[in-house]
């Protein structure tokens, strides 16, 4: 699955630097995101993963360096961040220029047709996260930013939402930047896995194994060991 169209980038980052006071979180970071590319961004907590995502989303303007995003961007956050006083459908259509049928289609795609009139606070964690994905995807983004959207889900729900994200990505082909701390999740989903360390991309490897992937795929096993080393964790977890 060579998703990347040669030469077409949706986001280009050059020398991105971000400091909170004395603490430099991103230091002269370079990154190109190709059209339709599924990237997973790994890093220890505090490594600046979310800072990079927020910069790409335009939520953090206090950064220096070049940051060019061509095309539209949508974000799904760790907590679904649905607007609690708008019903599910109202959340999908919020700020949307397209007719309401598009929102209904998006809800159907994530399997929430039945819940379109529900209040967000009555949704389960998985339903809320699916609604959040629908809200992002209905905008047909060129770049979809996912900020640890699976981390708060229980293990079974996470598997089904992983499947859903892959299906939606295969159908709509946005470039995806998935911020996660889960190495296995990154390997199961992404074309390309990055490790952020000390403010830069410390590791960049392509994942070529065909989907659906299994954890015991030899390529993934080798990559997992490399990634864990890059993250400063011994693969055996014993040292």
């Amino acid at each position: 699955m060579a998703a990347r169209l040669p030469g077409v980038t949706v986001a280009s980052v050059r020398g991105l630097t971000k400091a909170f006071g004395e603490r430099v979180v991103l230091e002269s970071l370079d990154l190109e995101i190709g059209s339709g590319e599924f990237i997973a961004l790994l890093g220890r907590s505090g490594s600046g993963k979310s800072t990079l995502l927020r910069a790409l989303a335009g939520l953090d303007r206090e950064v220096s360096g070049e940051l060019a995003v061509t095309g539209s961007v949508a974000v799904a956050f760790q907590e679904p961040r649905l607007v609690p006083w708008k019903r599910v459908l109202g959340n999908i259509t919020l700020g949307l220029d397209a007719p309401v049928e598009r929102a209904r289609e998006a809800l159907a795609e994530v399997g929430l047709t039945e819940r379109e009139q529900a209040w967000p606070l009555t949704l389960s964690g998985g339903e809320a996260q699916r609604a959040s994905l629908a809200r992002a995807l209905v905008r047909e983004p060129d770049l979809l930013l996912l900020d640890e959207p699976f981390s708060a889900l229980d293990a079974l729900t996470r598997i089904s939402v992983h499947q859903l994200v892959l299906e939606l990505w295969a159908r709509h082909r946005p470039a995806v930047l998935l911020v996660t701390h889960d190495v296995d999740e990154a390997l199961l989903l992404a074309d390309r896995v990055l490790v952020l360390d000390e403010g830069r991309i410390a590791h960049d490897s392509a994942v070529t194994a065909p989907r659906p992937r299994h954890r015991d795929n030899p390529e993934l096993i080798t990559l997992r060991a490399d990634l864990l080393t890059a993250l400063g964790v011994s693969p055996e977890g014993r040292s």
């Binding site: 907590e79 961040r81 607007v83 919020l94 949307l96």
Partner: peptide, 12 residues
């Protein structure tokens, strides 16, 4: 403030 961020990403 998190909802205000959502509004920003939704181009409100």
């Amino acid at each position: 403030g998190k909802l205000a961020e959502v509004a920003h990403t939704l181009k409100l």
